[in-house]
């Protein structure tokens, strides 16, 4: 009771003096252990088939390759789109501004799953309508991997446009003026002064979006037969009548993936922050 009260009142880690018994860290470790015991209990109670899991883990786990291809591909498309989108939003040109606003509004306003289906299922239909020139066919009829990358890139590019825009806008006008006063061109100013500083603001949420995309790439596996994690879990789970086990494998692998990339994201974040925090220079 005393502990509960202290935690509520103390916001975060309670002070040492208050804990007569175990340290905060110990109590946390024990809590995690308790959660693990409960979960294992549940698995045993429901006769979780670990042998089956071991057997299928390698096959389902290899789906990671496609998950990563989709996610890296999607990100490779989303980043330039977001940069163009942001520069369009910030441009004084009415045309560029409208295009960018339309793009953001449409792709944020419709579900990613619908976009994947559009590109993979609906576009091919257009290719064979009368009067549509043949050279459009390879553009409209896409392999599921390309369709998936396109949909993920377009969708996340729209979300990230806003991230990039606010990152660029967070750089004070004094920086731009200083660069102009040094005779730097607008392009040089953007590339050498504004964007490097904006990156510091842009990278953390972009990392979050990449991690979200890892998980959203499963939607591509719903639409078509790309054998990424979820698709493999789903198809083998159905065929072997063990969906709980196969989905658990997929969930664990997604979880591990996000853990790994969160770790890298934190490292990257610290790297780009140099020059902005005194501690960084001191090396504390």
């Amino acid at each position: 009771m005393a502990e509960a009260r202290a935690t509520l009142g103390g916001l975060g880690k309670p002070k040492e003096a208050r804990a007569p018994g175990l340290s905060y860290q110990w109590r946390k470790t024990i809590s995690y252990a308790a959660i693990a015991v409960v979960l294992i209990g549940v698995f045993i109670f429901f006769q979780f088939d670990t042998d089956f899991m071991m057997l299928w883990f390698p096959y389902i786990g290899r789906g990671v390759v496609y998950t990563l291809i989709l996610s890296f591909g999607g990100m490779a498309l989303a980043i330039p789109l977001a940069l163009l989108g942001a520069l369009g939003r910030l441009s004084r040109s009415a045309v560029l501004n409208s295009i960018s606003a339309f793009y953001v509004s449409f792709f944020r306003g419709t579900p990613l799953l619908v976009q994947v289906f559009f590109i993979y299922y609906a576009f091919p239909q257009l290719a064979f309508r009368p009067g549509v020139p043949g050279f459009l066919e390879p553009v409209l009829v896409l392999d599921i991997i390309f369709a998936g990358i396109l949909a993920l890139g377009l969708n996340y590019g729209a979300y990230m446009t806003e991230i990039f825009r606010s990152g660029i806008q967070s750089i004070g006008h004094g920086q731009v003026e200083a660069a102009h006063a040094l005779a730097m061109s607008p392009r040089q100013t953007t590339r050498r002064i504004v964007l490097p500083q904006a990156l510091r603001v842009i990278i953390p949420p972009t990392g979050n979006d990449f991690i979200a995309m890892l998980k959203d790439s499963s939607l591509v596996g719903v639409a078509g037969s790309v054998t990424e994690l979820f698709n493999r879990a789903q198809t083998t789970g159905r065929a072997e009548v063990h969906p709980f086990e196969t989905l658990a494998i997929a969930a664990l692998v997604y979880w591990a993936l996000t853990g790994v990339f969160t770790f890298f994201q934190n490292k990257l974040e610290r790297r780009v922050a140099r020059g902005h925090f005194r501690e960084q220079v001191h090396g504390h």
């Binding site: 920086q175 200083a178 040094l182 002064i193 500083q197 020059g275």
Partner: peptide, 26 residues
């Protein structure tokens, strides 16, 4: 050359990098 009230140094560059940025790029 212009000097501003608020200095407007480039925070992502070291002092020397601030000094050589424009001579090199411009």
């Amino acid at each position: 050359g212009m000097v501003f009230q608020e200095f407007n140094l480039f925070p992502h560059l070291t002092v020397m990098e601030n000094l050589i940025e424009a001579p090199v790029t411009v």
